[in-house]
Design a protein around this nucleic acid. Structure first.
Lengths: 147, 147
DNA sequence: TTGTAATAGTTACTTTTGTAACTAACAATA
DNA sequence: TATTGTTAGTTACAAAAGTAACTATTACAA
């Protein structure tokens, strides 16, 4: 007894979203992990730099909504492995301007092509309009807590 | 230069799904954490037992797609805090039959009512058909890797 | 039976994340 | 120019998750 419409876990949006996110990330995750030994945070930083060019850790944090310690550690590992190079900003010596190295560019190009194919494969399970509405709905949900 | 249609991170489904899942879980998470000191894994176990009655850890693992060590630790904490009770199955003494205690039932009722309200609030940002299509699409994506 | 494999769940160890405190640099104001 | 506050990023410590090896029990077949 729990109210007029009884609760259903496998219809509960946060639960569904988490399951779908996990499911939809699994295979792609194994690719960047296997090929480049990257974690999710590192892949995200790589893609931000690949897409938007030079950024600071703070910039990435705002765009990707990642905490600065996560970014700090991701950048650390990416520079250790020569995917990213950092130079201190001469105007503000607290900030570091991050860019992809040639190796980083190459990994980015490779992975973004994988990402395109991967997404196309996912999308084959959805109709065109379904995929479009899905994206819109997800964007709305993201914006809710975008404060 | 990256192909005919250039890659967009904020349209990339796995990325969108992760962001939306995180965004849509955030506030609810803070409720079960603040009221009952529960983690996500514990909340999930609680809800499975509340919804489906007596289950074993393995049952829950299959339904929730959680690894058995996660469940083992969640059950451990839930029994420590008297939300769950466990009894060894007499037919198969490896298995433990898990059920909610009165306190567990009460937490479950409270949280499932919160969940209903929370979901309704999320849904207010979506049209009826949008919400329906979203669920369908998410279910399809979940099933893809359901092996 | 007895030996081998499978299953339920736990434990130990490692990796990753979260949180808070920290350093260094800048900004603003008295 | 001191003083106070803010910002960029790192580090230290604690909590959580992942992985593999483990115990105990059951299943099955030689």
């Amino acid at each position: 007894m729990s109210g007029p419409e009884t609760f259903e876990l496998n219809k509960f949006l946060p639960y569904l979203l988490n399951q779908a996110a996990e499911s939809a990330s699994l295979e792609f995750q194994s690719i960047y992990k296997d090929r480049y030994g990257m974690l999710r945070t590192e892949w995200r930083v790589l893609f931000h730099l690949g897409l938007y060019g030079e950024m600071t850790a703070t910039d990435i944090g705002m765009r990707a909504r990642m905490h600065k310690t996560k970014i700090s550690r991701a950048v650390q590992r990416l520079t250790d492995r020569r995917f990213v190079s950092r130079t201190t900003d001469t105007n503000d010596r607290r900030a570091e301007r991050l860019t992809l190295t040639a190796q980083g560019q190459s990994a980015y190009r490779d992975l973004s092509s994988v990402a395109r194919d991967y997404e196309a494969a996912l999308q084959r399970h959805l109709s065109t309009s379904e995929a479009a509405i899905l994206r819109t709905a997800l964007e709305k949900l993201i914006r809710i807590s975008a404060i």
